[in-house]
Nucleic acid binder design. Structure first.
Lengths: 276, 276
DNA sequence: TTGCTCCTCACGTCACGTGAGGTGGC
DNA sequence: TTGCTCCTCACGTCACGTGAGGTGGC
């Protein structure tokens, strides 16, 4: 025995508003079992309630409607559950991120205003193995981790010798337009075979203003801000990719306090300006 | 010495996209220090970077733009920091909520499909002390906790005797339109003085289909669904407020497994239908 | 002078909510 | 029959992103 009920009644049992149910019909997320062709009245069946509840739960956990829909289209219940659990795991990681960001902000508020120590450096062209890609701002960190891992594996496999710390070049467009070119590299000596995404390159030389960031990468934006302010104040900023050098790393924990990172900002006439 | 820089350069140092900076100008969240009246070019000052960074952090923590703006308008730095810390605390509570919701969903997926035990009950009109209000869906739980607390305090203060478990009446509109009337009550004997929000009322009688929900209130929607499906299937659902009775409570922890709650759904002709 | 940077609209996105104006069902 | 429920537009909200078409500065 299966009853058809109006949208209002279904709304009460599913704990979804009438407006929301109509919206879910429009976008094909939850279709009423029957629609009266004359009146347009939607009729739901009592056995659609569990479905509606799962939708409500997933939306409550910020899963996008499109994702919920494709998830529910999955026939195999086991696969479906796996997808949900995968989302929950991602969510958990995000929660940890947010909690860390909150901590970082609390720290920031307590931090005394520091006068940054900025150093000038002339960097010469350097042979290296590198991975390059066009990345979205939000994907940078994930991409960067994977790419550095692949580079290190390649260096080990080909028995190359690193001639300096690993680093990265980040196109301004990544910050200005949320999308741009990025390169990570490890300087090496000798003959390199291109494998996978890894290619031999020469990292171009540059005049850089350099600041050192101690600790978690989640607060590196502060160092960027200090360095940016400094080069602006001295009116020596020029266009070009921003650089990072990873002096002390801990790839297992990006929020570890053991990280030591240098940030380089392209400038001109370093020597003349340094005397100011 | 204070330099004026273009939007693009400021963007790199602040790690905010050019589009975002223009948007923040439009909505008055972060105004450039200077705007060229001819070209419309925006010029930022290097000393605006810390401000931009705080904005970026707060937005990263989902603080609405309007809230960020009013926060930054606060002159007193100590007050400002307090507001931020308050937001972080709220956020933390939300994170815990989300984590619990994720757990609840995992449970839901593991739960075997139960055949709900539904009972019919004729409830007689009952004298009670009560608090009533028009509530938004999102505020229901907060309101409900406060109101029940106030009721209990009143019962103790006036040395009244509870004649049954506390309960609530929730207008359908709360679920159907996200906003409606809600009442919480404690049945009592004897003379009652109206104090604060508390008034003496008679809770109307009703024919109810009742289901019992064991454990955390965060999964009570499942019980609502089961009960709703049951009354729909038996075609005896009628309009009227949904009811709850709190048999075992633990106000310190809404997610405690010790909660015992009855949900009542208005129905008609309970006896005739019960025979089906 | 070229090419890059900056500008202003206007519209799109996401997941609904709001409200007007009207009809259907018990 | 009344009043409640349901319907369909069309537009609003929030925080930007996208893209067209055009101008300014080194």
């Amino acid at each position: 025995m299966r009853a058809k009920v109006t949208i209002g009644e279904f709304s009460r049992a599913a704990h979804l508003s009438v407006k929301t149910l109509r919206h879910y019909h429009d976008v094909g997320l939850l279709e009423p079992r029957e629609v009266d062709p004359d009146s347009g009245y939607r009729y739901y069946s009592e056995d659609q309630i569990p479905q509606a509840q799962v939708i409500r739960r997933l939306r409550g956990l910020q899963m996008p409607v499109a994702e919920v829909r494709s998830l529910l289209a999955t026939e195999d219940a086991a696969v479906r559950n796996e997808l949900i659990v995968a989302h929950l795991d991602r969510l958990e990681a995000e929660l940890a991120e947010t909690a860390a960001a909150a901590d970082a902000l609390r720290d920031l508020l307590r931090r005394p205003p520091s006068s940054p120590e900025v150093e000038h450096r002339t960097v010469l062209p350097t042979a290296a193995v590198a991975i390059e890609a066009t990345v979205q701002r939000n994907d940078v960190i994930t991409w960067w981790q994977g790419a550095l891992g692949e580079l290190e594996a390649t260096v080990r496999a080909q028995r190359l010798t690193a001639t300096g710390p690993s680093g990265g070049l980040f196109d301004s467009a990544i910050f200005q337009e949320d999308r741009g070119s990025a390169i990570v590299f490890i300087p090496v000596d000798g003959q390199v075979k291109a494998i996978g995404r890894v290619t031999p390159v020469v990292i171009p030389g540059a005049e850089l203003a350099i600041i050192r960031h101690h600790g978690s990468l989640s607060t590196i934006d502060v160092a960027y801000g200090e360095l940016g302010a400094w080069v602006m104040k001295h009116e020596i900023s020029i266009d070009g990719p921003l650089r990072e050098y990873y002096l002390q790393v801990d790839f297992d924990d990006l929020r570890s306090e053991t990280w030591e990172t240098e940030i380089g900002w392209p400038v001109f006439r370093a020597d003349a300006e340094a005397a100011r």
